[in-house]
Nucleic acid binder design. Structure first.
Length: 275
DNA sequence: CGTTACCCCTGGAGGC
DNA sequence: TGCCTCCAGGGGTAAC
């Protein structure tokens, strides 16, 4: 489920409830998600306070501090992860793998497929963590523009959709928003990245930013219900032009939306509007 | 070095 | 109803 917008909406939803709160307990009901949950993590966390929540790509980074030092909780939602705040003592359901317990609320991490990640980085500089250090540019940062994308795609023979989804180059763009941004820019997902002109790179960079921002805004509108929402943040769904619409008419020209497979993932696009 | 294939895991949908 | 296959919003690693 979660791509950059869903993760950002989760961050925005959690921040006002958790900022400054002290961790009084932690429960791990699964020994591992994608990675082993660090041994002794619960004991390390107790007594620390959340001072900030940062998003880097699709990772949520919780800054946990105390007077005697702290570190960062590194969380990734994977394919099926979700976060919600529940009242302390609320019974855990199936796939509720992690609880972070605060005095007045509990942060609950549910992840049926267990592709998610929960790791600990001791000390201040979480950017040095191996999983974080290799991440590419933030698509919503000022440095990401058509010129950057043009330079990044030179010499790359891979299809542009694959390049967009590689988090070592650009972070946060998943299967849905890759399809939507390429449709918006009128670029075929099959086109070799190096064969996109500078002008069209500008269109694509703008389309990526607009698509992500629109999705964040759509999710943000439901933040009021964050604490008690059944679905938690990320349950919103941006209406898609082509994603998961195989056979339906292209909203632009009416031709049927095509479904193909690229690098093991489904791709949706309009053969007529996207070249 | 860049690019692709496979794998981790569970559940829902659809065919038979 | 059950069983089977395929598919799912991610990404690390091994292999070409």
């Amino acid at each position: 489920m979660p791509e950059l917008p869903e993760v950002e909406v989760s961050r925005l939803g959690l921040l006002p409830h958790l900022a400054g709160q002290g961790i009084v307990g932690a429960d791990f009901r699964a020994p591992r998600l994608r990675h082993d949950i660090p041994l002794g993590l619960a004991a390390r966390l107790i007594g620390l306070h959340i001072t900030a929540i940062v998003r880097r790509g699709k990772y949520l980074l919780f800054d946990c501090e105390s007077t005697s030092g702290g570190g960062w909780l590194i969380l990734h939602l994977g394919m099926s992860g979700s976060l919600r705040l529940v009242a302390p003592g609320t019974a855990a359901q199936k796939h509720d793998h992690v609880d972070l317990v605060f005095a007045r609320t509990t942060l609950r991490f549910r992840d049926p497929r267990r592709f998610g990640t929960l790791l600990w980085h001791e000390g201040e500089n979480v950017a040095q963590h191996p999983l974080i250090a290799v991440l590419g540019i933030e698509p919503l940062s000022p440095a990401f523009d058509g010129d950057w994308l043009y330079a990044h795609t030179r010499g790359r023979s891979s299809p542009i959709k694959t390049v967009l989804m590689d988090s070592h180059g650009i972070v946060g763009i998943g299967n849905i928003y890759a399809a939507e941004a390429l449709f918006k820019a009128g670029i075929s997902p099959l086109r070799a990245a190096a064969r996109i002109s500078r002008e069209r790179c500008r269109l694509l960079a703008a389309a990526i930013r607009a698509t992500l921002k629109r999705a964040i805004a759509a999710g943000g509108s439901s933040l009021r219900d964050y604490v008690h929402s059944d679905g938690g943040a990320g349950s919103f769904q941006l209406s898609c032009a082509v994603y998961d619409r195989a056979g339906e008419p292209c909203p632009c020209c009416g031709a049927p939306v095509r479904s193909i497979r690229q690098a093991g993932r489904s791709t949706f696009y309009c053969m007529h509007c996207q070249t």
